[in-house]
Simulated assay, not measured.
Amino acid sequence: MSLAEAKVLFLRDIRLLSQETQRWHKENLTAFEKVLAKQGIEISDVGSLTAKMVKENFVFYMSEEMGLMANTINGRVRSVRALLKFLHGEGHIAKNFGADIPMIKGEEVIIETFSEEQIDALLRQPNRHTFTGLRDYTLMLLLLETGIRISECVKIDLTDVHLKEGQIRIHGKGAKQRLVPFQGKFRRALQRYLEVRGPAESEALFVTVDGTRISKRYVQELIQDYGEMAHIRDVRVSPHTFRHTMAKYYILAGGDIFSLQKILGHSTLDMVRRYVELFSTDVQMQHRKFSFLENHM
């Protein structure tokens, strides 16, 4: 089996994962083929792949000859590791040597978060006397309260919301679902929004004035606009910054990494451990309940 054929089989095997994940793996594995091809290497039999070849002709070549960033290289390595695991599981290669393929150590990426003053400024921008303003205010509260991804936020339906239980069913990556909790202050804000929203035809929780589901890009743009209105310049104003901010205050309040992992929907503990490294120094100063809304609004 050639490398090109192996890639096709692997991509077929992961077709139940999100489209973004499938596209990411496809791009990385196509890059794997191209990097080898630049050196005149064509893999007609995946059984000929070795850890040394992948390290020398892929990882080190991208770093030393092509000068690619560590994040780009490591993303591609993750996809190659996933491919090797699949090929070994299917009996196409004798050994899964993915663990022997190294990652490149790069500069630590700074995780930006909002300060309390910046959060207050952002939440003051929507005009809550209008439907869209109340919707945007509630949406930002949801991101801050739960730390969910924006792609997950726009997928929420009315049937996913359980006000009495204080939970929302989230449709995450890889068709995985999880229940994310919320507290009393957000419950009251959400209830108010639902009353104003009324019986729109769409099943979506967050809708436009026409009653249609809002898009991921639409939310990204409106949050950027509110950032401009709030004159926030030193932090990237994006839905993902809300996610990092929620994690920060959760850790500062003494929340444990296992429950945070569940809430955020991370498949591993790597990212939440990173949050702990960055934000746990002041845990004793704020050892209270995790919710930012409960403590600061």
Rank of each mutant, 00 (worst) to 15 (best):
F206R: 12
F206G: 13
F206A: 12
V207M: 11
T208E: 13
T208R: 15
V209D: 13
V209G: 07
V209E: 14
V209K: 13
V209R: 15
D210A: 14
D210K: 15
G211A: 12
T212Y: 15
T212E: 15
T212P: 12
R213H: 07
R213I: 09
R213Y: 09
S215Q: 13
K216T: 15
K216W: 12
K216L: 14
Y218H: 08
Y218Q: 10
V219K: 04
V219R: 05
V219W: 06
V219Q: 02
Q220A: 10
Q220R: 11
Q220E: 14
Q220K: 09
E221T: 14
E221F: 11
L222Y: 03
I223W: 10
I223V: 15
I223K: 10
D225S: 09
D225E: 11
D225V: 09
D225T: 12
D225R: 11
Y226Q: 03
Y226W: 06
Y226V: 03
Y226N: 03
G227T: 02
G227K: 00
E228L: 03
E228K: 07
E228T: 03
E228R: 06
E228I: 03
E228W: 00
M229A: 11
H231T: 00
H231Y: 02
I232Q: 08
I232L: 08
I232M: 08
I232P: 06
R233A: 01
D234F: 00
V235D: 10
V237C: 04
V237I: 07
V237W: 05
V237S: 05
S238D: 02
S238C: 04
S238I: 03
S238Q: 03
P239I: 02
P239C: 01
H240D: 10
T241A: 04
F242S: 00
F242A: 00
F242K: 00
R243A: 00
H244G: 00
H244S: 01
T245Y: 07
T245C: 04
M246V: 04
M246R: 07
M246Y: 11
K248C: 07
K248V: 05
Y249R: 03
Y249W: 06
Y249K: 01
Y249F: 07
Y249N: 01
Y250T: 02
Y250L: 05
Y250K: 05
I251R: 03
I251T: 04
I251P: 04
I251E: 04
L252K: 11
L252M: 13
L252I: 05
A253P: 06
A253N: 13
G254N: 09
G254E: 07
G255W: 10
G255T: 10
G255C: 11
I257H: 12
I257V: 15
I257E: 14
